[in-house]
């Protein structure tokens, strides 16, 4: 075995991913989701039986194609869960803690939207009512950031 352990210089070789970028298509129901968000103050969900799936899944658990239904963003939504973020990706302290929440339009759904909630850490709680703050129509790009954030409903 000694030869395997023989001391040996092992210079390192640099490499980098040559891909310039990836372009991801939204998919069948994803396209509906972003189109609706861009053109209306709403998103879409998939209805499989009585259950609502957000974001919309193309396929229901039984493999059938679900029904696409609109869910308004003008009504109050609820905080299903949340986390308070104090540091950025590189571990630097943020100027102001950020609240990231799982948001749902009603109780009996599968999934929800992950987005920012504009609130103070001490105000936040599960079950609170929130409302979407949307960008003006003309500025929307069909991206999740067309919703700027959710804010607490007084």
């Amino acid at each position: 075995m000694s030869m395997w352990r023989k001391k040996c210089t092992t210079p390192e070789y640099p490499g980098k991913m040559e891909t310039e970028k990836y372009v991801y298509t939204p998919g069948l129901h994803g396209l509906e989701f972003f189109k609706t968000l861009k053109e209306k103050d709403a998103i879409v969900a998939t209805k499989c039986g009585e259950t609502l799936y957000i974001p919309p899944t193309t396929l229901c658990p039984d493999f059938s194609k679900g029904e696409v239904v609109e869910v308004p963003l003008t009504n109050p939504w609820y905080i299903a869960s949340y986390t308070i973020v104090y540091e950025d990706m590189d571990g630097n302290k943020l100027d102001k803690p950020q609240i990231l929440a799982l948001l749902v339009p009603e109780e009996d759904i599968v999934g929800g939207i992950i987005h920012y909630v504009k609130a103070e850490p001490e105000e936040i709680d599960v079950g609170l009512m929130v409302k979407a703050k949307l960008k003006p129509r003309e500025k929307r790009e069909g991206k999740i950031t067309d919703i700027e954030y959710f804010e607490l409903v007084a």
Binding site: E12, G15, K16, E20, Y24, P26, K143
Partner: peptide, 21 residues
């Protein structure tokens, strides 16, 4: 490129490979 919901992303992946014995 023009579809609503299309996302572009540039990976930043750098590697150091050891050359081995």
């Amino acid at each position: 490129y023009q579809l609503p919901g299309t996302i572009e992303y540039t990976p930043v992946a750098k590697y150091r490979f050891t050359t081995g014995q």
